[in-house]
Each structure stands twice: as structure tokens, then as C-alpha cells.
Design a protein around this nucleic acid. Structure first.
Lengths: 327, 327
DNA sequence: TTGTAAGCGTTATCAA
DNA sequence: TTGATAACGCTTACAA
């Protein structure tokens, strides 16, 4: 069984090559009966269009690229993993495949764009881990390269399509749950101000307390992400709180440990619902990653036709409650 | 700046298109001086070969495909994640890119091969999660599709190239460590017999005990993977052991929990060194995933030239010791 | 509604 | 050592 091309199909169906192409690309233009004959030939021969030939002609590869990052502290790395799986899954029915690349930083990533675009004719990029002053989005936008971001353009105008999870809603939900279960001294353990995500997560906590008329002033701490740093940062706070909302599962784990060591009971809620949270029974705010990935693909469709205006989607996280028992 | 093709370069260097192609593909055949002039033109114009055109001519895409699996229980999923990152990293310098696909089972995966091969001209596959009676490897082998597996061909002959981690050596290392630190009642918690990986991990434990003349009979338990099931399966065992080697971090976590609840001190060592192990301070056997990925790419080079005979590589895991404190 | 012709950018073949 | 020519398989005009 040698290579089945459009010519093979045409011959078998007794039509010209062009008609076969029309059946594939503009079916409306082909008479019903002819179309059926062609489709039957396609099925019988197991014909599949060559991407390379199609790409050469159209300049589009039906490939989208995503950066795979090293599993940072290993705890939060799994977030990207789940997102990637969702993306690959959602892309396939839309006729797209996902290509991976790595990069050490934004500059390096931009250099990779250049290569990917000129050598592979990549159709679009999906960016994750957006941040303030992100050089990548402006680079892509300037060149008219289609892309969507998972993560809003912190501080920049909404000129492109993006999907994000409502971080503030997540911590608000966690805070509300703590209030509902009778807690009144609810603290927050987060990251230093300046990161959009971190600030939003803090805001969700602060505003919920404010709305409930429960004081929160002085009940927060900030440190870089990590179990150790979280434990250290929260030590003083433990004297004045009986519950803690945290900006990440790593921090939450640190807080749990510090609480256990200090002997002060403290309910802790983390963020991201990572494997670690599942494992140790830590309540955590869960991002709808599969859904986020699917929405990214949806938005990409609009971006690729250049038809639709940029759209932005904010997804609601959910709260996964567990008995914060240690292992 | 419109599209820079081989013709643009040829014109600028004052040579024919073919000479430019020769500089790229068979430099030996081009006179030094000419080659330099061409290379200079390439650099000046920022020329990059079009993959699509090249692929159409050669039939090779410089793309390798890997399946991304859903993050199963979330704990062990990160193993694949790290492997993927290593693979993408190692493939790039070799001139290859990694494409992702998903599949629900082996049959579905084989259907995907068919599509990927005929539509995208994929050059090779990297398979993970090999198992007994793996239909995928025989399908690929029959059709002469280049592939390597991360994981040996359990029960089948070594007719293809693969990389694997010496599972038995990992549990042996863990068992030896326990012996060295004075333990004499060392149990094993693993999976039901029949999975190659699980059996190997059990063997490493059993043979090390046997070699040391320490009895192990009756000190093992088997259950499906998971924290809950691990905890349940190990309950009885806890009366007769003071240390446990486990086939996974999930099982180890279950064992730790059961031990804590029963009040019997028990040293536990897990397998895979996942984020959870790091988080809770669980000692664990660590697989050299980055290295495994790099070796897969190395072996693939041999498979792709059809030059070298199949090669097999067994990598040594390492033992990461932590204070098995709970969080 | 269907067919013809041209060309996308590259490399393999062959001749100069 | 270099250059001309012909594919590779497809789609987009345009003509029938």
C-alpha cells in the first residue's frame, strides 16, 4: 500500500484532483452525488491529507505551541501539567496539535518564537505564567502572531484574548467558608506584593473580611513561595489567628507544619489543589484547568480567523474541602 | 521584510539555489570560499529553512510524538511531567521538536499513530508506560516506524531500543539503607503481581533481604495504588515490621498514615520522589528522569538512521533521604 | 459544477 | 564544484 494522495482518490472516484480538494475544503460547491463518491473513495483508500503539502500551500501548520516549564518546586508544577493535557485534548477535535518548547526566560522564549514561526509556520501560541511587563505578548502582538494567554495581561490593556481563573474569587470563597464555619480570626499567608496573581489572592481574602465586618488588619504575612519559608513567615501570626488562607499549597503546607509544631490549632486552606493537598488532606482552592484549556482553544479559533474581537474569560475556581489532617 | 527563501539567499550570495541547499545539507561538497559566502548571506538575511517544504521533499518532519497522560492520582503524574520537559529540552539541540497527543487506551493510541504518521509524517514516537503484552510496540515495529520506549518491553524480546530505570536496584538501595541503619524487620508494600515494574520493585527488596540473611517472608502486602488502599493494606503488617519499602509514594503515604494512626513507629521509604515526598519529608527512590529523556533522544538518533542495532539502557536510581516527619 | 494550470520552498538527480 | 530541472502533494485562481 503505497502513498495515497489526492490523485489516487481522484482516479478512484473518477473525478479530477481539484474536485477532491473541493470536497475537503469547500464541500458546498460540490454536487451531492459527486461528493459522496469522493468521500467513499477517501474512506476506502484511507486517504489523509498531507499536512506538509497543505502547509506549504496555505502557510498554516495547524500546530500550536506551548512552553513546558520545569516543575519549579514540584508542588505547583502539576498545574501546568494538567493544563497541558487539557489543551492537547481540546486541540485535537479542532484539528490542531500541540507542540512543546522550553525556554529559560522571556528573552529566550522570544528567540524561540522566531525560530518556531519561520521554520515551522506555527499557527498560534498559548502562553502561561503571564506577568507584569510581559515582553512576550507585546512581541507577538506587534508581529500579528495569533496567541491567547492563560493568565490576564497584568497591568496591560486587554488587547488580546485571554482566559484566567478568578483568583480573588478563590480566596474569597475560602475566606467565606471559614467565616461560615465560625472562624473570626482569619489570616492570610501570601507572596510579596507586586505579582498580579498574589495580589488578587490577597484581595479576595481582605475584601471578604471587610464585607463581613471582621477585622483582618495585621493578620497577613508575605514571603516567597515554599514550605520552609511559609512555615517561617507564619510563626508570629499563629498567636493571633485560628485559620489561614494561603496563596499556594506550598505556603499552606508550611503553615500547617508551623501550626502543628507550635501546638496551636489552625485551619488552613491552600490554593491550586495540587497532588500534595490531596495527599495530606489539605483543603484547597481548585482551578478548573481542563476547562481553562478548552476555553483557550475556543478563543484561539476566533483569533485565528481574525474575525472576532479579542475576548476575555474569567473562570470560577471551586473550593475542595478536606479534613486538614496531616498524613 | 518578506519571506526569505533559499532563492533569496542564492541571489545575495551569487550562487544557485542548489548550492545553498548543499551548504545546508552536504557542506563537504561545497568549496570553502563559496560556503562562507553563502553562510554569510544566510546570517545576514536571517534565513531559516521551511520545515514544510523540506518535509514535503524528504518525507521527514523532525517531529517526535509523545503521549501526555492525565495526571492519574496526581501524585505520580509529575513523573511524566518531568520526563516530558527533559525530552523537549534534549530534542531541541538534536533538531527535533516534541508533539503531544492524548489517548484513552492502547487501541485508541494506535489509531492516533495512524493519523499522526500519515498526516504529519511523524519521524518517531517515544512511548512511556510500557507493559506486558503491549500492542503498541508490535504495531510500530511491524510497520517499521522508529520508536524508543521509556520502560523495557516487559515479557517481550529486546528487539527495539529502550531506556529504563533499574527498579529493583532502587528498592534494593532503599532496603540496604534500612539494613544499614539497624532495621531488621523490613516489610514491603507493593502492587499485585503481574506488573513488570511492581514485580521488579518487590524483587529488589526481597533479594536484598535474602542476601543479608534477614527474613522477609510474610512481610509484604500488595494492593492497588493509592493512599487509602495503601493505608488499609498495611495495617496488619505494622505489627511485625519497623520499616517499610514501598512501590510508590502514594503507597508510602498510606503506610505513613497507618503507622501514625496505629501509634507504631515505622520508617517508610517511597518510590518516585514526587512533590508529595518532598513536601512531607518522605524518603524516596528518585528516578533520573532528565537523564532518561536525554538517553531516549540519543537512542532515537540511532534508530532514525537505521544504522545502529537496538540498544538498551538501564539507569540507576538514587535514594533521597529525608526525615520522615509528617508535615 | 468540474477541470486545468501554476506555484508554495525544498532537495535529488543529473549534466556541465 | 556548481547549476538546471524535476518532482513532493496540495490549494487557489481561473477557465470550461
Amino acid at each position: 500500500m503505497s502513498k495515497v494522495t489526492i490523485a489516487t482518490v481522484a482516479e478512484r472516484a473518477g473525478v479530477s484532483r481539484q474536485t477532491v480538494s473541493n470536497v475537503l475544503n469547500t464541500p458546498q460547491v460540490v454536487r451531492e452525488e459527486t461528493r459522496e463518491r469522493v468521500l467513499e473513495a477517501i474512506a476506502a483508500l484511507g486517504y489523509r491529507a498531507s499536512q506538509a503539502a497543505r502547509q506549504m500551500r496555505t502557510g498554516r501548520s495547524r500546530l500550536i505551541a506551548v512552553r513546558i516549564e520545569p516543575a519549579r518546586d514540584g508542588i505547583n508544577g502539576s498545574v501546568l501539567d494538567r493544563f497541558l493535557h487539557g489543551l492537547t485534548d481540546a486541540a485535537a477535535p479542532a484539528g490542531y496539535r500541540v507542540m512543546l518548547y522550553t525556554a529559560t526566560d522571556d528573552t529566550d522564549e522570544i528567540a524561540t518564537y522566531e525560530n518556531l514561526l519561520t521554520s515551522y509556520d506555527l499557527d498560534a501560541f498559548v502562553l502561561t505564567s503571564t506577568h507584569h511587563g510581559d515582553a512576550r505578548t507585546s512581541w507577538l502582538a506587534e508581529r500579528g502572531v495569533p496567541f491567547v494567554t492563560f493568565g490576564r495581561p497584568w497591568g496591560a490593556p486587554d488587547t488580546h484574548s485571554w482566559v484566567d481563573v478568578d483568583n480573588a474569587a478563590g480566596t474569597a470563597m475560602a475566606t467565606r467558608h471559614l467565616l461560615d464555619t465560625g472562624h473570626r480570626r482569619i489570616g492570610f499567608l501570601g507572596w510579596p506584593p507586586g505579582s498580579g496573581v498574589g495580589d488578587a489572592r490577597r484581595d479576595g481574602w481582605a475584601s471578604t473580611l471587610a464585607a463581613a465586618g471582621v477585622p483582618g488588619t495585621g493578620l497577613d504575612a508575605a514571603t516567597e513561595d515554599g514550605i520552609e519559608s511559609g512555615a517561617a513567615a507564619v510563626t508570629d501570626l499563629l498567636a493571633s489567628v485560628d485559620a489561614l488562607v494561603c496563596a499556594s499549597d506550598s505556603l499552606a503546607l508550611g503553615a500547617l507544619r508551623a501550626a502543628r509544631e507550635s501546638g496551636r490549632p489552625c485551619t488552613v486552606i491552600g490554593f491550586d489543589d495540587t497532588a500534595v493537598a490531596q495527599a495530606v488532606g489539605l483543603s484547597s482552592v481548585s482551578q478548573p484547568l481542563t476547562q481553562a484549556a478548552a476555553r483557550c482553544i475556543d478563543l484561539l479559533a476566533g483569533v485565528l480567523d481574525r474575525s472576532a474581537a479579542p475576548r476575555q474569560l474569567l473562570l470560577e475556581p471551586s473550593l475542595v474541602l478536606r479534613q486538614s489532617a496531616a498524613i
